[in-house]
């Protein structure tokens, strides 16, 4: 009886395989984009650079590339944290203001309370982690949807930062050098960068490794993909979700450090745009807002696309007011393409 069963399975499988629909070239493109989420953003980035390079050769000069890389560092670092959260089908609207709170604590602890540089840095990182603990608790314990939870903490972190700083700006010269180290120049080949750029790139390498090569990384994808399936498969989903927010908080602390170095100061108005730009970078980078699909490499491309558009449009002498329009169109196009990719044929 057993052998007949096995034979029947073989026959059935062959017939099923024969029924596979023929693929059009468009289907094949869709399938490739589906399998490699960072491919689309890479193509867009390369195309963008070629077009703007042809419009104005200064765009691809070492000087402009260095400038763009410096400009992208803070958003790129926040983008790593945002990617982690969006992979779990969440979103963090508070991320930029958590960063500002962290950088104000770092700077003022050192400048006004004369705490040693390392301690001040650790305090700032702790504020970042604390913001993650708050958001993570709201999402996993109180079951507040991430959009609402972080909308609430956005206002809380924003006001807390303003209250704490009392409207003061702390200049880099008033701080221990460690806090400003991320702004020190560093030359790599023809590029003149700051240490903060390298720190941001380091974050990408570390988090990419964690997401693709470790059990925790795989569980992040599984939880974002189908939380019920992950739970039934024996993953402690709330623990994974909470740890994502806490880890993202730590990365926010590092982004705060980069921001002080890049701006040369700690100001309550540092990088207020970075909040929404981090989401823009993740979405343009091909990570799905529905969770479980994407990764940090795409986000790096996404952040670079945004900064390339800003710089390229400026160099092409386009009115600055068009830049937000370009960003808006990019985001909507990215999500529309994601929807199309997700409808991949079986």
């Amino acid at each position: 009886m057993g052998t007949t069963t096995a034979k029947r399975i073989d026959i059935a499988s062959e017939e099923v395989a024969g029924l596979a629909p023929r693929q059009t070239p468009l289907d094949r493109i869709q399938r490739q984009l589906h399998a490699h989420p960072a491919l689309g953003p890479l193509i867009v980035l390369v195309t963008t650079c070629i077009v703007f390079g042809l419009l104005n050769p200064r765009f691809v000069a070492a000087q402009n590339i260095s400038l763009m890389l410096q400009q992208v560092a803070v958003v790129a670092a926040l983008g790593v944290a945002q990617t982690l959260i969006i992979l779990t089908a969440g979103i963090d609207l508070s991320i930029g203001y958590a960063m500002i709170l962290a950088l104000l604590v770092m700077a003022q602890a050192a400048a006004n309370n004369e705490v040693a540089g390392l301690i001040a840095l650790l305090l700032g990182l702790a504020v970042g982690v604390g913001s993650g603990v708050v958001n993570g608790t709201l999402v996993t314990r109180l079951r507040v949807p991430p959009f609402i939870a972080t909308l609430g903490t956005l206002f809380v972190f924003q006001s807390a930062g303003l209250l704490y700083a009392k409207g003061q700006t702390t200049q880099a010269t008033e701080m221990p050098h460690l806090l400003n180290w991320t702004g020190d120049p560093v030359t790599i080949g023809p590029l003149n960068l700051i240490n903060g750029v390298l720190v941001a790139l380091g974050l990408y390498l570390v988090v990419h490794y964690i997401l693709t090569q470790t059990q925790w990384g795989r569980h992040v994808y599984a939880v974002g993909d189908d939380v019920e399936a992950a739970r039934l498969a024996g993953i402690r989903t709330n623990r994974v979700l909470f740890s994502v927010y806490v880890f993202a908080g730590l990365i926010v602390g590092v982004a705060a450090w980069i921001s002080i170095g890049y701006a040369g100061a700690a100001d309550p108005n540092n990088a207020v745009d970075a909040n929404l730009q981090s989401i823009t970078a993740v979405v343009i980078g091909g990570t799905s807002l529905f969770g479980g699909r994407g990764g940090v490499i795409g986000t790096l491309f996404g952040a670079l696309i945004v900064v390339a558009f800003t710089s390229g449009l400026t160099l092409a002498n386009v009115n600055n007011l068009y830049q937000p329009i370009a960003q808006g169109v990019l985001v909507i196009a990215a999500v529309a393409i994601d929807q199309w990719i997700r409808r991949v044929k079986r």
Binding site: Y221, A222, D225, A229, A230, R231, G234
Partner: peptide
Amino acid sequence: TLALAPALDVASNMFLGRE
């Protein structure tokens, strides 16, 4: 409902939670 993660591959799903 099978409790499988659609975006992960066959091998990853077989070892899901027990990597």
